[in-house]
Design a protein around this nucleic acid. Structure first.
Lengths: 189, 189
DNA sequence: GTCTATAGAAAGATAGAC
DNA sequence: GTCTATCTTTCTATAGAC
């Protein structure tokens, strides 16, 4: 019984990690339950022993993806990079590519709009956490918290990356990402 | 012959307008050719007399949607609003709702990432035009052109609206939109 | 819990009548 | 050019064996 529960939990996590990766890269509609299960080393039929629907998996995978990239952005985590290190990483061409890490806030922005409340709640929760982390960085840097400024910073990061991913011109994407970096690195924002 | 060609052109435009509206509101995968044709007052089978594929229709509909909202943003158009009027309109809760107008750059940002080059080229072209219009506003206002700043402004507008549409919390969305407006109205950007 | 098999629905694209 | 009918594929979700 204890072993079974442990095994089920591990399997569930494997499914979630596969889902977080595949959904972020390809969007909800282009990934089937089959794809996720295959990536996790299982088959279709086993899915419903872990989740009740594809939408539920999607919502949970957003939280999973956010946690795996978000640990690196919490300034209270001793392993987290500096604010400028965060900017460089987040607004990099590697992040745009999405092979190693992918923030679901930027990779799934408009994908979320078409989903049910279960999914949109998950996205909203992750966005609030993202802004809260930027608030913490503000406090560390300047001693003051300014949520308006944190939201502007969030838009510049998430929006900049999302647009850089949409456009089909690598040079323009580089210029766009570095423009966003410049807006955040100077005292402007 | 002349009448037929004129009629075909009108029909094609009706299809494009329906597509621009439905795709922007619902994304590529949730709108079928059937939905578009029904909205245009026709049926499925007639579609392929006008377009060769759904992807081609999507690419063209992005240009159509951009033109219908973009005329209002070109400062060289005498009917266009002031820069601050543009900010207010673009970052409004009505635009977030999308009933009257919808900028495809913000409504389809991550949707584009999954499509073929035909579609991504259209999006990229529209984005470049958007930045160019912001450049023109800069010149009118301050006499100097600053493309880096125009890109930052574009990200704040497009990204802010896209995120406001994704989150499931009207109050937070209002706060987010007004934060973006504040960033653009002050001399900061 | 995981498998194979399948039901049932939706949608892109084509064929052929008018 | 537009219609109806259809081919074909894809995918969610369920049933039942092990």
């Amino acid at each position: 019984m204890a072993w079974n529960n442990e095994h089920k939990k591990k399997t569930r996590e494997r499914i979630l990690n596969s889902a977080a990766k595949l959904f972020a890269q390809n969007g909800f509609d282009h990934i089937g339950i089959n794809d996720v299960m295959k990536d996790a080393g299982l088959t279709r039929g086993a899915f419903y022993a872990h989740f009740s629907s594809k939408a539920e998996l999607y919502a949970e995978s957003i939280i999973t993806a956010a946690m795996s990239t978000g640990r690196k952005t919490d300034p209270l985590n001793p392993e987290a990079p500096s604010f400028d290190g965060l900017l460089k990483t987040y607004l990099s061409m590697e992040h745009r590519q999405g092979d190693l890490f992918r923030c679901p806030l930027a990779f799934l922005t408009t994908d979320i709009t078409q989903r049910d409340d279960q999914v949109r709640n998950a996205y909203t929760r992750v966005f609030k956490g993202f802004v809260k982390n930027l608030d913490k960085h503000s406090i560390q840097q300047s001693g003051t918290k300014n949520t308006t400024r944190s939201m502007q910073q969030a838009v510049m990061l998430i929006g900049g990356l999302a647009i850089a991913r949409a456009i089909n011109d690598d040079e323009l994407a580089k210029e766009l990402l570095s423009s966003c970096h410049a807006a955040l690195a100077t005292p402007a924002l």
